[in-house]
Design a protein around this nucleic acid. Sequence first.
DNA 1: CAGTGGTCTAGACCACCTC
DNA 2: AGGTGGTCTAGACCACTGA
Lengths: 249, 249
Amino acid sequence: MNRPPARTLPLSPTFSPLYRQIKELILASLESGEWGPGDAIPSESDLAQRFGVSQGTVRKAIDEMAADNLLVRRQGKGTFVATHNDPHSFFRFLRLAANEGVLPTSRSVPLECTRARAGTDVARILGMAVGTPIVILRRVLYFADKPVVFDEVYLPAELFPDFSLDFLNANDESLYSLFESRYGVRMIRADERLRAVSADRVSAAALDVAEGSPLLLVERVAFTYGDKPVEWRRGFYSTANHHYHNELS
Amino acid sequence: MNRPPARTLPLSPTFSPLYRQIKELILASLESGEWGPGDAIPSESDLAQRFGVSQGTVRKAIDEMAADNLLVRRQGKGTFVATHNDPHSFFRFLRLAANEGVLPTSRSVPLECTRARAGTDVARILGMAVGTPIVILRRVLYFADKPVVFDEVYLPAELFPDFSLDFLNANDESLYSLFESRYGVRMIRADERLRAVSADRVSAAALDVAEGSPLLLVERVAFTYGDKPVEWRRGFYSTANHHYHNELS
DNA sequence: CAGTGGTCTAGACCACCTC
DNA sequence: AGGTGGTCTAGACCACTGA
């Protein structure tokens, strides 16, 4: 008697629960830009009505997306699309901390921005053909006027067509914040590989350390919706007074 | 009419939802050893009856504890206390991967196990008084017969009274698995700080690299129930053919 | 088959925010 | 006061496991 009207039957093979299908629908709306970063999405009851499911099912879908850092819930106000333009999320992709005390304010200093074509490595990592146009950005992050991180960033030129140093100098927002507001490319996940290396001439000069000093090399592949890789980054961290912080659980 | 019998009222200040109180109760049972690692805990309906709440409330408590890696749900079978004695959880606290291919099987070779008294650093980190007895273990992890990680492990002697190399040689289980089965100390969380350093004489010898080579230093503080620190570890990783892997989301 | 966790619903009420 | 998310309940049914 309690059975609601018939719905697409799951039935064993390739079974996907309703709330996951709802999640995919909301994800599609995010990807299509129906709701942009920072926007409020419709209330749970609105979405429940739109999708023809109960509020609890929408709730479970949103719960997972909030756990994935795609949405942010704020009690009494609504549910919002996560954004990188938010001081809190600055350290989500920068696991840097000072050995003692709190990390002082940072300053990003772009060094150069060049155009090139993907070699075999970049092409493989970003899932593109060898020779595809790319943009290369080099910059240094300063903390308390000391250089700490030297970054080399590789981007597909197609997604970031008019990228240049000008935008960086004019903006003190984070790189991912710029990507999301100017190019509509939202980074949602990243894989990092960490190694210890000896500083070569370029990174030693950028970080003001002796050539051959040990540096922490952080290689990152960042992904946007649909697990599409859209950034490759090599960051050289000077770890004399700072460290990379990670919590295991 | 739908109101269940009266319950301890939350009422604004220091409000904690019911499912969180249930979580604390289950946590207490874990801590007290009522259910040991690997054991099945009572079914959701049993717990609901025991605590006088609905099954959905118990469910939400268990959901959070499963997300915290304290419990493991297995559909159709039950809910189990998480254990380190499990090949799957071996890499939960060892974020090591091979640069190419899969990581071959590992072999842990203990070098020495000594007794000492806590200096200021260890005392501060482990929350004990200076001079408290500690145990120091040094060992090397080999992959495909190549040394990759040189570990120095500092433990409070009180919790690991008869710790010695013998137990290690006789056991090919992981260190945390041994801690949990032999000493009843379960590691549930850890903080790691990563830096690049130059190999000193000791670590260079242990890892068969040249003195001064860049090594990845991973300093870890591991915590048991109640966020009590019970291990400090300095791991020197040789990252020529391996790397520390981290996923950001 | 019975027992477990997993999904879905419907409805009530609470906590929080804004107007 | 009215909206939002957050909690809690009760009950039905589904999917998985193992005897």
